[in-house]
């Protein structure tokens, strides 16, 4: 099923939707990479620092 938005509460705006689809892949990829790095740093510094509770 791919009919988006016929039930949308507000007008999402066609341009805004296409932009999300366009930038999504890159944004998602960079977010994933950043998370990996963050995880790696956390793992690396685990020994020296007390574990911080993760946010979000």
């Amino acid at each position: 099923m791919s009919h988006f938005y016929h039930l949308a509460y507000i007008d999402p705006g066609t341009g805004s939707v296409i932009l999300q689809a366009t930038i999504g892949a890159v944004a998602g990829f960079s977010y994933a990479v950043r998370n990996r790095i963050r995880g790696f740093i956390a793992k690396f510094s685990k020994g020296s620092k007390a574990e911080k509770p993760s946010k979000g």
Partner: peptide, 22 residues
């Protein structure tokens, strides 16, 4: 909104959505 005409190009995966919010 034009969204139904080319649905495949309007898909935003969950990972992509997380990336946009981030």
């Amino acid at each position: 909104t034009g969204a139904t005409t080319k649905p495949a190009s309007r898909r935003v995966s969950r990972a992509a959505l997380d990336g946009i919010i981030d």
